[in-house]
């Protein structure tokens, strides 16, 4: 009951923050890349285009987007000096922290949904006649969503800590870029959370189509790393937020 009020309050703060632009940026970009894509898989009309789009969306954009969302959600508390106002409201600091977390999750959901639609749009514009592999793309989008959770937890921690908007993204770029290479290694990929969005989305797509993109040696490792890094970053971030002195 109380928590939903905190959520509503956070949601209201997003008004006029041009968040739609940020939510739609990656799906729109992926659509353009999908339209230009020349990748073609013989047995499956949609597969080449969708794979190109997933690669463009998940390798860099999606992980970096978590940093932008996190910074966006804390931006006015930093610059308008309103941490002190929010934190003297009669709600626990944890509620504030997790309300922000959930709003980011919601924005991520919007992005992933828009991406799902984008794949359909790109294929339809290219005049594909086969039925749209909805379930497969949905699986991919869903796993991608899950794979972003640890990243969000870390980014939210950084965003509450650093006052500069770009700060969390600097750390994010440093951690995400190696993922482009690390994802190629079936051994190390699943161990590295920043490679997870890419691995998760590609693997889920191929898996649901009955294939194996070969990105993931061990799905178990993938989930264990995902859950433990999520737990780690969430605990550290929220404890830090709770203990910190607000001036």
């Amino acid at each position: 009951m109380m928590f939903s009020n905190v959520l509503k309050s956070e949601w209201l703060k997003l008004k006029h923050s041009k968040v739609v632009f940020i939510v739609l940026a990656s799906p729109v970009l992926a659509t353009i890349i999908g339209l230009f894509s020349t990748m073609h898989v013989p047995e499956h009309q949609w597969l080449g285009t969708i794979t190109t789009m997933i690669l463009a969306h998940s390798a860099i954009f999606l992980p970096l987007l978590t940093g932008v969302f996190a910074a966006l959600i804390c931006r006015h508390e930093h610059s308008g000096g309103s941490w002190k106002q929010v934190l003297t409201l009669p709600v626990s600091r944890l509620q504030i922290y997790f309300a922000k977390f959930i709003v980011i999750l919601f924005l991520l959901t919007l992005t992933q949904t828009a991406f799902l639609i984008a794949t359909w749009v790109a294929g339809t514009l290219k005049g594909f006649s086969d039925p749209f592999p909805f379930v497969n793309v949905l699986m991919s989008v869903g796993v991608g969503w899950l794979a972003c959770l640890p990243l969000i937890a870390l980014q939210l921690w950084l965003a509450t800590m650093l006052t500069s908007f770009a700060g969390p993204s600097v750390v994010n770029v440093m951690l995400t870029f190696p993922a482009v290479i690390i994802a190629n290694s079936p051994l190390f990929g699943p161990l590295y959370p920043w490679a997870h969005p890419l691995l998760g989305m590609t693997q889920a797509l191929s898996y649901s189509l009955g294939g194996d993109a070969g990105f993931l040696d061990s799905a178990v490792t993938f989930y264990v790393v995902m859950i433990s890094s999520l737990a780690l970053f969430t605990v550290v971030g929220s404890v830090h937020f709770q203990r910190r002195e607000w001036v």
Partner: peptide, 15 residues
């Protein structure tokens, strides 16, 4: 709002 600048920059980098 640096969100716009960052998103555009990331989009360019990916593109």
């Amino acid at each position: 709002n640096q969100g716009i600048a960052l998103t555009t920059g990331i989009a360019n980098a990916v593109f």
